[in-house]
């Protein structure tokens, strides 16, 4: 039996799972939509991974990251739960030890990580607005009647991207509508949108950060060729996009799970697991905390959200 390690990255839009072996080779991976239900999507993900995984392997460690990391960490009894910034940096550094800048645009957040000599020196995350993230792109794609996957190809066709006021998603959308009604071709609008994502990212997240090559671009949006093109154009540097760029967070957390293994063996059998959450509001004081109780097979494992520690 050989050892392997599972990393799960549960983002707002997509859920990513990766299984690596002792040499950090990817033996199985999957990428599915979260669809607002992290518990179910992880169950689905594990089913897919189980089929892909060779019978010779046993899972020696599980790590979770992404916005639902705590919940899924409880569900899978993960041996490590880490934030996505660390996971992305670790994942990237395993494959690209010399990297200096990581640009990452995900579903609901975008980040920049600066690295020097293999350690993170600084990072930033978008604070307030969704302009410049993947969910804005996907909602606009839906509105224009195009698959997000084809977005990049459309953008590459354009020779004259329109200018879009992209400070804020709402204003950007009204500007987009206006440009479409005036009669600009679809390609130019899409290209303008891709460019606005880049500009927004650099003005918002990348503000005050020194972007030094080599640069790698990750997250779901890195699959969009249009955005990559405009990053190259505006930064005037070469941008590396790994074929596994969308899985980098999951790879990173799998590497961390390997480092923190505790000798336990885990199973991927989660189909029959009953994992429930119950939400209620505590009216004990005027804080009115929103509480969440988490049950694993009808057994209370944790409760979150209490300010005073009553629960």
């Amino acid at each position: 039996m050989k050892d392997c390690y599972l990393g799960v990255d549960i983002g707002s839009i997509s859920t990513k799972g990766v299984i690596i072996d002792d040499e950090n080779n990817i033996i199985a991976s999957s990428y599915i939509w979260t669809e607002g239900n992290p518990v179910n999507s992880v169950k689905k993900l594990l089913e897919i991974l189980k089929e892909k995984l060779d019978k010779n392997y046993q899972i020696k460690g599980i790590g979770t990251t992404g916005s639902a990391r705590k919940l899924i960490g409880l569900m899978l009894k993960a041996n490590i739960v880490k934030n996505e910034i660390t996971a992305h940096a670790i994942g990237t550094l395993t494959f690209y030890p010399n990297i200096r800048t990581i640009l990452e645009i995900g579903g609901q957040d975008s980040k920049i990580i600066l690295i020097k000599n293999g350690i993170i020196t600084n990072y930033a995350m978008n604070t307030l607005c969704a302009a410049g993230t993947g969910s804005f792109l996907s909602s606009q794609a839906k509105r224009l009647g195009i698959n997000v996957e084809e977005f990049g190809d459309y953008a590459l066709k354009s020779k004259n991207p329109v200018k879009i006021a992209a400070r804020c998603t709402v204003f950007a959308e009204s500007d987009l509508v206006h440009k479409a009604q005036v009669g600009y071709p679809k390609e130019d609008i899409i290209a303008g949108l891709c460019k606005s994502i880049v500009l927004n990212y650099l003005n918002n997240v990348g503000k005050g950060k020194k972007i030094t090559p080599p640069i790698i671009f990750q997250g779901g949006v890195s699959k969009n060729k249009g955005v990559v093109k405009y990053f190259k154009e505006i930064l005037k540097e070469d941008i590396i996009v790994d074929e596994n760029s969308h899985l980098m967070g999951a790879i990173g957390i799998a590497v961390l799970a390997k480092k923190n293994k505790n000798g336990n063996t885990y199973s991927l059998e989660m189909k029959n697991l009953k994992f429930q959450t119950k939400a209620f509001e505590c009216n004990h004081c005027s804080n009115n905390c929103e509480l969440l109780k988490i049950y694993r097979n009808n057994e209370l494992v944790d409760s979150w959200g209490s300010k005073c520690g009553k629960y």
């Binding site: 916005s67 880490k82 934030n83 996505e84 910034i85 660390t86 350690i119 993170i120 020196t121 600084n122 990072y123 995350m125």
Partner: peptide, 13 residues
């Protein structure tokens, strides 16, 4: 999330 990443970064450094 930001705080956690900050601790991790400081510890790595």
């Amino acid at each position: 999330t930001r705080l956690e990443a900050f601790y991790d970064m400081l510890e790595m450094r």
